[in-house]
Design a protein around this nucleic acid. Structure first.
Lengths: 244, 244
DNA sequence: GTTTGTGACGTCAGTCAG
DNA sequence: CTGACTGACGTCACAAAC
Protein backbone atom coordinates (compact mmCIF):
# COMPACT_ATOMS: atom_id res chain seq x y z
CA UNK A 1 0.00 0.00 0.00
CA UNK A 2 2.93 2.30 0.51
CA UNK A 3 5.13 1.13 -2.31
CA UNK A 4 2.75 2.78 -4.69
CA UNK A 5 3.29 6.13 -3.13
CA UNK A 6 7.01 5.76 -2.98
CA UNK A 7 7.15 4.82 -6.61
CA UNK A 8 4.99 7.78 -7.47
CA UNK A 9 7.14 10.10 -5.50
CA UNK A 10 10.31 8.81 -7.06
CA UNK A 11 8.86 9.23 -10.48
CA UNK A 12 8.19 12.80 -9.67
CA UNK A 13 11.64 13.28 -8.32
CA UNK A 14 13.10 12.05 -11.55
CA UNK A 15 10.79 14.27 -13.50
CA UNK A 16 11.86 17.16 -11.35
CA UNK A 17 13.68 19.02 -14.07
CA UNK A 18 10.95 18.35 -16.59
CA UNK A 19 8.20 19.30 -14.21
CA UNK A 20 8.51 22.98 -14.81
CA UNK A 21 8.54 22.44 -18.52
CA UNK A 22 5.61 20.09 -18.44
CA UNK A 23 3.47 23.13 -17.75
CA UNK A 24 4.54 24.81 -20.94
CA UNK A 25 4.06 21.73 -23.06
CA UNK A 26 0.28 21.92 -22.89
CA UNK A 27 -1.64 18.63 -22.84
CA UNK A 28 -3.19 18.80 -26.31
CA UNK A 29 -3.57 15.02 -26.87
CA UNK A 30 -6.57 14.79 -24.54
CA UNK A 31 -9.48 13.88 -26.86
CA UNK A 32 -8.41 10.42 -27.81
CA UNK A 33 -10.24 7.37 -26.60
CA UNK A 34 -12.74 6.39 -23.94
CA UNK A 35 -10.38 7.03 -21.08
CA UNK A 36 -9.98 10.63 -22.12
CA UNK A 37 -11.99 12.03 -19.24
CA UNK A 38 -10.23 10.28 -16.41
CA UNK A 39 -6.89 10.88 -18.01
CA UNK A 40 -7.66 14.56 -18.30
CA UNK A 41 -8.49 14.91 -14.66
CA UNK A 42 -5.42 13.02 -13.64
CA UNK A 43 -3.21 15.15 -15.77
CA UNK A 44 -4.72 18.31 -14.44
CA UNK A 45 -3.83 17.36 -10.90
CA UNK A 46 -0.36 16.30 -11.82
CA UNK A 47 0.18 19.60 -13.52
CA UNK A 48 -0.94 21.43 -10.45
CA UNK A 49 1.38 19.42 -8.28
CA UNK A 50 4.33 20.14 -10.48
CA UNK A 51 3.43 23.76 -10.36
CA UNK A 52 3.31 23.77 -6.64
CA UNK A 53 6.52 21.91 -6.38
CA UNK A 54 8.30 24.53 -8.41
CA UNK A 55 6.66 27.33 -6.47
CA UNK A 56 7.78 25.92 -3.18
CA UNK A 57 11.29 25.47 -4.40
CA UNK A 58 11.46 29.08 -5.48
CA UNK A 59 9.92 30.19 -2.27
CA UNK A 60 12.42 28.32 -0.18
CA UNK A 61 15.26 29.82 -2.12
CA UNK A 62 13.93 33.29 -1.62
CA UNK A 63 13.62 32.61 2.05
CA UNK A 64 17.19 31.45 2.30
CA UNK A 65 18.38 34.54 0.49
CA UNK A 66 16.44 36.72 2.89
CA UNK A 67 18.04 34.96 5.81
CA UNK A 68 21.48 35.48 4.40
CA UNK A 69 20.74 39.08 3.70
CA UNK A 70 19.70 39.61 7.28
CA UNK A 71 22.92 38.10 8.51
CA UNK A 72 24.97 40.30 6.25
CA UNK A 73 23.13 43.41 7.26
CA UNK A 74 23.71 42.61 10.90
CA UNK A 75 27.43 42.17 10.40
CA UNK A 76 27.57 45.36 8.43
CA UNK A 77 25.67 47.30 11.02
CA UNK A 78 27.83 45.96 13.78
CA UNK A 79 30.92 46.94 11.91
CA UNK A 80 29.66 50.42 11.32
CA UNK A 81 28.90 50.71 14.97
CA UNK A 82 32.47 49.90 15.68
CA UNK A 83 33.84 52.54 13.36
CA UNK A 84 31.50 55.05 14.92
CA UNK A 85 32.84 54.15 18.32
CA UNK A 86 36.30 54.74 17.04
CA UNK A 87 35.31 58.05 15.63
CA UNK A 88 33.83 58.99 18.96
CA UNK A 89 37.03 58.21 20.72
CA UNK A 90 38.99 60.29 18.30
CA UNK A 91 36.63 63.14 18.86
CA UNK A 92 36.93 62.79 22.58
CA UNK A 93 40.64 62.82 22.40
CA UNK A 94 40.64 65.85 20.22
CA UNK A 95 38.21 67.46 22.55
CA UNK A 96 40.41 66.92 25.54
CA UNK A 97 43.33 68.41 23.78
CA UNK A 98 41.50 71.47 22.70
CA UNK A 99 39.94 71.90 26.06
CA UNK A 100 43.26 71.60 27.76
CA UNK A 101 44.73 74.19 25.54
CA UNK A 102 41.72 76.31 26.25
CA UNK A 103 42.29 76.10 29.97
CA UNK A 104 45.84 77.06 29.53
CA UNK A 105 45.02 80.01 27.33
CA UNK A 106 42.41 81.16 29.74
CA UNK A 107 44.87 81.03 32.58
CA UNK A 108 47.41 83.00 30.60
CA UNK A 109 44.82 85.50 29.64
CA UNK A 110 43.62 86.08 33.18
CA UNK A 111 47.16 86.43 34.35
CA UNK A 112 47.88 89.17 31.87
CA UNK A 113 44.56 90.86 31.84
CA UNK A 114 41.73 89.99 34.18
CA UNK A 115 38.34 89.25 32.61
CA UNK A 116 39.58 89.97 29.12
CA UNK A 117 37.84 86.87 27.89
CA UNK A 118 34.07 86.92 27.64
CA UNK A 119 32.71 83.77 29.23
CA UNK A 120 29.91 82.98 26.84
CA UNK A 121 31.08 82.93 23.27
CA UNK A 122 29.37 82.55 19.94
CA UNK A 123 26.85 79.84 20.74
CA UNK A 124 24.70 80.35 23.80
CA UNK A 125 27.03 78.26 25.83
CA UNK A 126 28.94 78.51 29.03
CA UNK A 127 31.91 76.29 29.24
CA UNK A 128 32.39 77.43 32.77
CA UNK A 129 35.56 76.55 34.56
CA UNK A 130 34.18 74.68 37.51
CA UNK A 131 34.52 71.30 35.84
CA UNK A 132 37.86 72.23 34.46
CA UNK A 133 39.14 72.70 37.98
CA UNK A 134 40.90 69.39 37.69
CA UNK A 135 43.29 71.12 35.32
CA UNK A 136 45.37 73.27 37.59
CA UNK A 137 48.13 75.46 36.29
CA UNK A 138 50.69 73.69 34.18
CA UNK A 139 50.63 70.09 35.37
CA UNK A 140 47.78 68.26 33.74
CA UNK A 141 46.62 65.07 35.33
CA UNK A 142 44.19 63.69 32.82
CA UNK A 143 40.99 62.35 34.28
CA UNK A 144 39.33 59.29 32.89
CA UNK A 145 38.08 60.13 29.49
CA UNK A 146 34.58 59.21 30.42
CA UNK A 147 34.53 61.13 33.64
CA UNK A 148 35.84 64.14 31.92
CA UNK A 149 33.38 63.99 29.13
CA UNK A 150 30.44 63.33 31.25
CA UNK A 151 30.91 66.53 33.16
CA UNK A 152 31.68 68.34 29.99
CA UNK A 153 28.64 67.08 28.19
CA UNK A 154 26.34 67.65 31.09
CA UNK A 155 27.56 71.16 31.27
CA UNK A 156 26.93 71.65 27.60
CA UNK A 157 23.73 69.84 26.96
CA UNK A 158 22.19 69.02 30.30
CA UNK A 159 21.67 65.71 32.03
CA UNK A 160 19.06 64.39 29.68
CA UNK A 161 21.45 64.22 26.78
CA UNK A 162 23.84 61.94 28.50
CA UNK A 163 23.19 58.37 27.60
CA UNK A 164 25.07 56.24 30.01
CA UNK A 165 27.13 53.68 28.25
CA UNK A 166 27.90 51.35 31.08
CA UNK A 167 31.61 50.77 31.11
CA UNK A 168 31.67 47.44 32.83
CA UNK A 169 34.38 44.92 33.19
CA UNK A 170 35.77 44.29 29.79
CA UNK A 171 33.66 46.75 27.97
CA UNK A 172 34.61 49.41 25.58
CA UNK A 173 31.75 51.82 25.16
CA UNK A 174 29.29 49.00 25.59
CA UNK A 175 31.09 46.55 23.36
CA UNK A 176 32.40 43.40 24.95
CA UNK A 177 36.14 43.17 24.76
CA UNK A 178 38.38 40.13 24.85
CA UNK A 179 42.05 40.43 25.66
CA UNK A 180 44.49 38.62 23.43
CA UNK A 181 44.74 35.48 25.55
CA UNK A 182 40.99 35.55 26.12
CA UNK A 183 40.51 35.77 22.38
CA UNK A 184 42.70 32.78 21.91
CA UNK A 185 40.70 30.77 24.40
CA UNK A 186 37.51 31.92 22.78
CA UNK A 187 38.63 30.66 19.40
CA UNK A 188 39.60 27.33 20.86
CA UNK A 189 36.27 26.95 22.55
CA UNK A 190 34.46 27.69 19.35
CA UNK A 191 36.40 25.09 17.47
CA UNK A 192 35.85 22.57 20.23
CA UNK A 193 32.15 23.16 20.51
CA UNK A 194 31.40 23.34 16.82
CA UNK A 195 32.76 20.35 15.07
CA UNK A 196 31.14 21.29 11.86
CA UNK A 197 33.12 24.45 11.36
CA UNK A 198 36.79 24.82 10.83
CA UNK A 199 39.02 27.78 10.29
CA UNK A 200 42.56 28.96 10.71
CA UNK A 201 42.96 30.46 14.16
CA UNK A 202 46.22 32.02 13.19
CA UNK A 203 44.56 33.80 10.34
CA UNK A 204 41.94 35.16 12.68
CA UNK A 205 44.52 36.41 15.12
CA UNK A 206 46.51 38.00 12.36
CA UNK A 207 43.51 39.74 10.91
CA UNK A 208 42.63 40.93 14.35
CA UNK A 209 46.09 42.21 15.09
CA UNK A 210 45.70 45.60 13.50
CA UNK A 211 42.41 46.30 15.16
CA UNK A 212 43.26 46.05 18.78
CA UNK A 213 41.98 48.46 21.34
CA UNK A 214 43.97 49.40 24.39
CA UNK A 215 42.06 48.33 27.46
CA UNK A 216 43.19 47.84 31.00
CA UNK A 217 43.92 44.20 30.27
CA UNK A 218 46.21 45.21 27.47
CA UNK A 219 45.37 45.07 23.79
CA UNK A 220 41.89 43.70 23.31
CA UNK A 221 39.44 43.06 20.51
CA UNK A 222 35.74 43.76 20.37
CA UNK A 223 33.93 40.46 20.35
CA UNK A 224 31.91 41.05 17.25
CA UNK A 225 35.07 41.89 15.35
CA UNK A 226 36.44 38.56 16.41
CA UNK A 227 33.30 36.88 15.24
CA UNK A 228 33.55 38.67 11.96
CA UNK A 229 37.08 37.52 11.44
CA UNK A 230 36.06 34.00 12.28
CA UNK A 231 33.41 34.09 9.62
CA UNK A 232 35.98 35.36 7.17
CA UNK A 233 38.37 32.61 8.11
CA UNK A 234 35.68 29.97 7.78
CA UNK A 235 34.81 31.23 4.34
CA UNK A 236 38.44 31.26 3.37
CA UNK A 237 39.01 27.72 4.55
CA UNK A 238 35.85 26.35 2.99
CA UNK A 239 36.54 27.91 -0.38
CA UNK A 240 40.08 26.64 -0.48
CA UNK A 241 39.30 23.19 0.89
CA UNK A 242 38.81 20.33 -1.59
CA UNK A 243 35.25 19.72 -0.33
CA UNK A 244 33.97 22.52 -2.44
CA UNK B 1 -4.15 4.29 -5.33
CA UNK B 2 -3.78 7.65 -3.77
CA UNK B 3 -6.75 7.61 -1.46
CA UNK B 4 -4.87 5.18 0.70
CA UNK B 5 -2.06 7.58 1.20
CA UNK B 6 -4.34 10.50 1.84
CA UNK B 7 -6.25 8.58 4.42
CA UNK B 8 -3.07 7.55 6.10
CA UNK B 9 -1.80 11.09 6.13
CA UNK B 10 -5.01 12.41 7.59
CA UNK B 11 -4.95 9.85 10.28
CA UNK B 12 -1.52 11.01 11.22
CA UNK B 13 -2.63 14.59 11.19
CA UNK B 14 -5.37 13.79 13.62
CA UNK B 15 -2.95 11.94 15.82
CA UNK B 16 -0.71 14.92 15.78
CA UNK B 17 -1.10 15.77 19.44
CA UNK B 18 -0.82 12.19 20.50
CA UNK B 19 2.15 11.48 18.31
CA UNK B 20 4.67 12.86 20.72
CA UNK B 21 3.10 10.95 23.55
CA UNK B 22 2.86 7.75 21.56
CA UNK B 23 6.59 7.50 21.96
CA UNK B 24 6.40 7.53 25.71
CA UNK B 25 3.57 5.02 25.87
CA UNK B 26 5.77 2.14 24.86
CA UNK B 27 4.21 -0.58 22.71
CA UNK B 28 3.97 -3.31 25.34
CA UNK B 29 1.02 -5.24 23.83
CA UNK B 30 3.11 -6.73 21.04
CA UNK B 31 3.25 -10.41 21.88
CA UNK B 32 -0.39 -11.27 21.27
CA UNK B 33 -1.46 -13.47 18.37
CA UNK B 34 -0.08 -14.71 15.09
CA UNK B 35 0.14 -11.29 13.51
CA UNK B 36 2.51 -10.09 16.22
CA UNK B 37 5.55 -9.95 13.99
CA UNK B 38 4.11 -7.88 11.18
CA UNK B 39 2.34 -5.67 13.65
CA UNK B 40 5.56 -5.05 15.50
CA UNK B 41 7.39 -3.93 12.43
CA UNK B 42 4.56 -1.67 11.43
CA UNK B 43 4.41 -0.08 14.82
CA UNK B 44 8.10 0.48 14.84
CA UNK B 45 7.96 2.48 11.66
CA UNK B 46 4.98 4.46 12.78
CA UNK B 47 6.77 5.32 15.96
CA UNK B 48 9.74 6.50 13.99
CA UNK B 49 7.61 8.64 11.80
CA UNK B 50 5.92 10.29 14.72
CA UNK B 51 9.29 10.94 16.18
CA UNK B 52 10.50 12.56 13.05
CA UNK B 53 7.37 14.61 12.79
CA UNK B 54 7.93 16.03 16.22
CA UNK B 55 11.58 16.66 15.55
CA UNK B 56 10.81 18.60 12.43
CA UNK B 57 8.24 20.67 14.16
CA UNK B 58 10.67 21.59 16.89
CA UNK B 59 13.33 22.31 14.35
CA UNK B 60 11.10 24.62 12.40
CA UNK B 61 10.22 26.50 15.52
CA UNK B 62 13.83 26.94 16.47
CA UNK B 63 14.50 28.21 13.01
CA UNK B 64 11.74 30.74 13.23
CA UNK B 65 13.02 31.93 16.58
CA UNK B 66 16.49 32.33 15.15
CA UNK B 67 15.07 34.39 12.33
CA UNK B 68 13.22 36.61 14.71
CA UNK B 69 16.27 36.99 16.86
CA UNK B 70 18.29 38.09 13.89
CA UNK B 71 15.70 40.68 13.04
CA UNK B 72 15.70 42.01 16.56
CA UNK B 73 19.43 42.17 16.76
CA UNK B 74 19.54 44.09 13.53
CA UNK B 75 17.03 46.63 14.76
CA UNK B 76 18.90 46.98 18.00
CA UNK B 77 22.21 47.43 16.27
CA UNK B 78 20.76 49.96 13.91
CA UNK B 79 19.31 51.85 16.80
CA UNK B 80 22.59 51.90 18.64
CA UNK B 81 24.27 53.16 15.54
CA UNK B 82 21.83 55.99 15.51
CA UNK B 83 22.51 56.99 19.09
CA UNK B 84 26.21 56.85 18.39
CA UNK B 85 25.67 59.14 15.46
CA UNK B 86 23.88 61.53 17.72
CA UNK B 87 26.65 61.39 20.23
CA UNK B 88 29.13 62.16 17.52
CA UNK B 89 27.22 65.20 16.47
CA UNK B 90 27.10 66.44 20.01
CA UNK B 91 30.81 65.96 20.32
CA UNK B 92 31.41 67.81 17.10
CA UNK B 93 29.29 70.66 18.24
CA UNK B 94 31.04 70.84 21.54
CA UNK B 95 34.31 70.67 19.73
CA UNK B 96 33.46 73.56 17.50
CA UNK B 97 32.48 75.66 20.43
CA UNK B 98 35.62 75.00 22.36
CA UNK B 99 37.75 75.47 19.34
CA UNK B 100 36.09 78.74 18.54
CA UNK B 101 36.62 79.95 22.02
CA UNK B 102 40.15 78.79 21.71
CA UNK B 103 40.69 80.87 18.62
CA UNK B 104 39.30 83.86 20.35
CA UNK B 105 41.51 83.38 23.37
CA UNK B 106 44.51 82.96 21.19
CA UNK B 107 43.72 86.16 19.40
CA UNK B 108 43.32 88.03 22.64
CA UNK B 109 46.48 86.61 23.95
CA UNK B 110 48.53 87.53 20.92
CA UNK B 111 47.08 91.02 21.01
CA UNK B 112 48.20 91.56 24.55
CA UNK B 113 51.40 89.65 24.49
CA UNK B 114 52.92 88.20 21.37
CA UNK B 115 53.80 84.48 21.52
CA UNK B 116 52.82 84.13 25.13
CA UNK B 117 51.10 80.90 24.36
CA UNK B 118 53.18 77.86 23.57
CA UNK B 119 51.84 76.23 20.42
CA UNK B 120 52.25 72.61 21.34
CA UNK B 121 50.61 71.80 24.63
CA UNK B 122 50.40 68.76 26.82
CA UNK B 123 49.79 66.02 24.30
CA UNK B 124 52.25 65.83 21.41
CA UNK B 125 49.87 67.69 19.22
CA UNK B 126 49.88 70.77 17.15
CA UNK B 127 46.54 72.29 16.66
CA UNK B 128 48.06 74.78 14.34
CA UNK B 129 46.08 77.72 13.26
CA UNK B 130 46.19 77.29 9.54
CA UNK B 131 42.92 75.41 9.43
CA UNK B 132 41.33 77.78 11.86
CA UNK B 133 41.90 80.60 9.41
CA UNK B 134 38.22 80.54 8.58
CA UNK B 135 37.63 82.07 11.97
CA UNK B 136 38.74 85.62 11.58
CA UNK B 137 38.62 88.10 14.44
CA UNK B 138 35.30 88.41 16.20
CA UNK B 139 32.71 87.49 13.58
CA UNK B 140 32.43 83.75 13.34
CA UNK B 141 30.96 82.33 10.21
CA UNK B 142 30.62 78.67 11.01
CA UNK B 143 31.73 76.37 8.26
CA UNK B 144 29.88 73.21 7.53
CA UNK B 145 30.35 70.97 10.46
CA UNK B 146 31.78 68.26 8.29
CA UNK B 147 34.16 70.50 6.44
CA UNK B 148 35.43 71.90 9.63
CA UNK B 149 35.93 68.60 11.24
CA UNK B 150 37.53 67.00 8.33
CA UNK B 151 40.34 69.49 8.32
CA UNK B 152 40.56 69.32 12.05
CA UNK B 153 40.71 65.56 12.16
CA UNK B 154 43.19 65.30 9.35
CA UNK B 155 45.35 67.73 11.16
CA UNK B 156 45.14 65.67 14.29
CA UNK B 157 45.24 62.14 13.10
CA UNK B 158 46.26 62.16 9.48
CA UNK B 159 44.33 61.29 6.35
CA UNK B 160 44.07 57.61 6.96
CA UNK B 161 41.91 58.08 9.99
CA UNK B 162 39.23 59.95 8.20
CA UNK B 163 36.49 57.65 7.09
CA UNK B 164 34.34 59.45 4.62
CA UNK B 165 30.73 59.22 5.51
CA UNK B 166 29.11 60.16 2.27
CA UNK B 167 26.47 62.75 2.98
CA UNK B 168 24.26 62.15 -0.01
CA UNK B 169 20.81 63.28 -0.82
CA UNK B 170 18.66 62.58 2.16
CA UNK B 171 21.35 61.19 4.32
CA UNK B 172 22.28 61.97 7.83
CA UNK B 173 25.70 60.61 8.52
CA UNK B 174 25.01 57.69 6.24
CA UNK B 175 21.53 56.93 7.45
CA UNK B 176 18.76 57.30 4.97
CA UNK B 177 16.28 59.98 5.93
CA UNK B 178 12.67 60.38 4.98
CA UNK B 179 10.93 63.71 5.33
CA UNK B 180 7.51 63.73 6.96
CA UNK B 181 5.52 63.56 3.73
CA UNK B 182 7.95 61.00 2.36
CA UNK B 183 7.44 58.96 5.49
CA UNK B 184 3.72 59.09 5.00
CA UNK B 185 4.02 57.87 1.45
CA UNK B 186 6.38 55.18 2.57
CA UNK B 187 3.90 53.87 5.09
CA UNK B 188 1.15 53.84 2.52
CA UNK B 189 3.27 51.93 0.09
CA UNK B 190 4.09 49.36 2.69
CA UNK B 191 0.48 48.83 3.51
CA UNK B 192 -0.40 48.58 -0.14
CA UNK B 193 2.31 46.13 -0.98
CA UNK B 194 1.93 43.90 2.03
CA UNK B 195 -1.59 42.80 2.40
CA UNK B 196 -0.80 40.47 5.17
CA UNK B 197 0.35 43.13 7.57
CA UNK B 198 -1.67 45.86 9.10
CA UNK B 199 -0.86 48.63 11.51
CA UNK B 200 -1.96 52.04 12.57
CA UNK B 201 -0.15 54.62 10.48
CA UNK B 202 -1.15 57.35 12.86
CA UNK B 203 0.44 55.50 15.70
CA UNK B 204 3.64 55.19 13.74
CA UNK B 205 3.69 58.88 12.90
CA UNK B 206 3.03 59.78 16.49
CA UNK B 207 5.75 57.56 17.79
CA UNK B 208 8.06 59.03 15.25
CA UNK B 209 7.20 62.59 16.08
CA UNK B 210 9.60 63.02 18.97
CA UNK B 211 12.51 61.59 17.08
CA UNK B 212 12.77 63.85 14.11
CA UNK B 213 16.01 65.17 12.77
CA UNK B 214 16.30 68.54 11.15
CA UNK B 215 17.42 68.03 7.58
CA UNK B 216 17.26 70.35 4.62
CA UNK B 217 13.86 69.00 3.71
CA UNK B 218 12.57 69.84 7.14
CA UNK B 219 12.01 67.40 9.95
CA UNK B 220 12.91 63.91 8.83
CA UNK B 221 13.18 60.44 10.27
CA UNK B 222 15.86 57.85 9.80
CA UNK B 223 14.42 55.01 7.80
CA UNK B 224 15.29 52.26 10.20
CA UNK B 225 13.55 54.13 12.99
CA UNK B 226 10.46 54.24 10.83
CA UNK B 227 10.75 50.53 10.23
CA UNK B 228 11.12 49.95 13.91
CA UNK B 229 8.00 51.91 14.68
CA UNK B 230 6.14 49.99 12.03
CA UNK B 231 7.11 46.75 13.67
CA UNK B 232 5.91 48.10 16.98
CA UNK B 233 2.64 49.18 15.47
CA UNK B 234 2.14 45.83 13.81
CA UNK B 235 2.71 44.07 17.09
CA UNK B 236 0.34 46.40 18.83
CA UNK B 237 -2.41 45.88 16.28
CA UNK B 238 -1.98 42.12 16.15
CA UNK B 239 -2.05 41.73 19.90
CA UNK B 240 -5.15 43.89 20.26
CA UNK B 241 -7.01 42.51 17.26
CA UNK B 242 -9.61 39.79 17.82
CA UNK B 243 -7.79 37.44 15.43
CA UNK B 244 -5.39 36.51 18.17
C1' DG C 1 23.16 0.26 18.24
C1' DT C 2 19.21 4.38 18.71
C1' DT C 3 17.99 8.76 19.04
C1' DT C 4 18.28 13.54 17.54
C1' DG C 5 19.18 17.37 14.48
C1' DT C 6 19.05 19.09 9.80
C1' DG C 7 18.58 19.75 4.82
C1' DA C 8 15.83 19.05 0.92
C1' DC C 9 11.44 18.07 -1.05
C1' DG C 10 6.70 17.38 -1.56
C1' DT C 11 1.74 18.11 -0.53
C1' DC C 12 -2.22 20.71 0.72
C1' DA C 13 -4.99 24.58 1.97
C1' DG C 14 -5.78 29.33 1.99
C1' DT C 15 -5.14 34.00 0.07
C1' DC C 16 -4.55 37.53 -3.31
C1' DA C 17 -4.27 39.69 -7.77
C1' DG C 18 -4.85 39.74 -12.66
C1' DC D 1 -11.60 31.41 -12.29
C1' DT D 2 -6.62 30.55 -12.53
C1' DG D 3 -2.04 30.99 -11.17
C1' DA D 4 1.43 32.62 -7.92
C1' DC D 5 2.77 32.96 -3.06
C1' DT D 6 2.88 31.36 1.35
C1' DG D 7 2.34 28.86 5.89
C1' DA D 8 2.14 24.51 8.01
C1' DC D 9 3.19 19.72 7.86
C1' DG D 10 5.02 15.39 6.60
C1' DT D 11 8.56 12.27 4.77
C1' DC D 12 13.07 10.70 3.72
C1' DA D 13 18.10 10.61 3.87
C1' DC D 14 21.94 11.35 6.34
C1' DA D 15 25.01 13.26 9.52
C1' DA D 16 25.81 13.63 14.44
C1' DA D 17 25.31 12.90 19.36
C1' DC D 18 23.96 9.93 22.98
Amino acid sequence: MKEERVLFSETLALQDIDSQLSLLLEPQQASNGIIANANDDEEERARKKAQNRAAQKAFRERKMARMKDLQDRLSQSEFEKFTLLQEIDQLKLLNIEIHTENQFLRKQSSNKNISQVPQGLSPPTSLSDENGAQFNSTSFSFPTKDTFFKSLMIDQFGEEFIQQRHSDDNQYSGVQLLSVPATWEYLQKIIQNNHDIEFDMIMVMNNLKKNHICAEEGPSYPIYLINQMIVKAIEASSSSSPTM
